[in-house]
Amino acid sequence: MSDTASTPEDQELQDPQLQKAVIVALRPGQPPRVLSEAIRYAGLLSAALVVVHVDVTRFVTFEDPDGMVHSAPIDLNIDTGAEEFAELRREVEKVLAGSGLTWTARQLVGDPALAIKHLAGALDAQLIVVGTRSRGIGESIREFFTGSVAARLSHRQSRPILVVPLEEPIADDKKDPWVE
């Protein structure tokens, strides 16, 4: 999805090797476990890996009949999402260098669950991999307003979703983090 004319990445999505891919949604600085699990499952399924970053600072304005998505910034600092995507791509390239795995990275815009769902449909993805949210009041507030991407995906599409914990599990005698 892009707000410019057709790019090599758009053409790349038509590549038959990317059909039935494993999609992994990542953010810069996210614990490496999410990517590691996605790589493992891509290998187990003999599938390509599509790494996605969703720029939530932009929203979809309209979509052409051919699937081309046009977007506009919410914030005046329109480079934030591009900078995050470039950083993420560098992190992923380091991990996947020499792996032999077919992969690509894509920047999506807007609502994360809907953007990932749309891409998964276009690729007929076998699996979607996402991480859990971080603990803390800030993340709890964010999730209150936006909802859990994993939960929203599970209710809006029929593909399997692997939810990878980002942190150590909470002890059984502790309060659930969403109760904070």
Score class of each variant (00 low, 15 high):
Arg156Asn: 13
Lys117Asp: 15
Gly43Leu: 01
Val60Trp: 01
Val92Leu: 06
Phe144Gln: 10
Val69Leu: 07
Gly136Asp: 08
Glu167Met: 15
Glu168Tyr: 08
Ile74Asn: 07
Leu123Trp: 04
Leu13Trp: 03
Pro31Glu: 14
Arg159Trp: 01
Arg58His: 03
Lys94Cys: 15
Gln14Ile: 15
Leu88Arg: 04
Ile116Asp: 06
Thr57Ile: 02
Ala82Gly: 06
Gly138Thr: 14
Ala113Asn: 01
Gly98Val: 10
Gln19Trp: 04
Gln157Asp: 01
Asp172Leu: 13
Ser2Pro: 09
Pro65Arg: 01
Ile141His: 05
Leu18Asp: 01
Ile161Ala: 03
Trp178Tyr: 14
Leu153Trp: 06
Ala113Thr: 11
Gly98Lys: 09
Gly138Phe: 04
Val164Met: 05
Ala125Val: 03
Ala105Arg: 13
Ala38Val: 07
Asp176Met: 08
Ile39Trp: 01
Glu180Gly: 15
Trp178Gln: 11
Asp15Cys: 10
Met1Lys: 12
Pro8Arg: 08
Val129His: 03
Ile116Met: 05
Asp124Gln: 13
Lys174Asn: 02
Phe85Asp: 00
Ala105Asp: 10
His70Ala: 05
His155Arg: 15
Pro65His: 06
Leu76Asn: 09
Lys174Glu: 13
Val56Arg: 14
Gln14Asp: 13
Leu114Asn: 15
Lys94Pro: 12
Ser71His: 14
Val179Arg: 10
Arg58Pro: 02
Leu127Ala: 06
Pro65Tyr: 13
Val52Pro: 08
Glu93Arg: 15
Val54Arg: 06
Glu12Phe: 12
Val56Met: 10
Ile128Pro: 03
Leu76His: 05
His53Asp: 11
Leu96Asp: 04
Glu180Gln: 15
Pro73Thr: 08
Val56Ala: 07
Val50Gly: 00
Ile128Leu: 11
Gly121Glu: 15
Ala42Ser: 04
Ser46Gly: 13
Arg90Gly: 07
Gly81Ile: 06
Asp75Tyr: 09
Val52Met: 10
Thr80Ala: 11
Leu114Pro: 02
Ile74Gln: 06
Leu162Ile: 09
Ala25Asp: 05
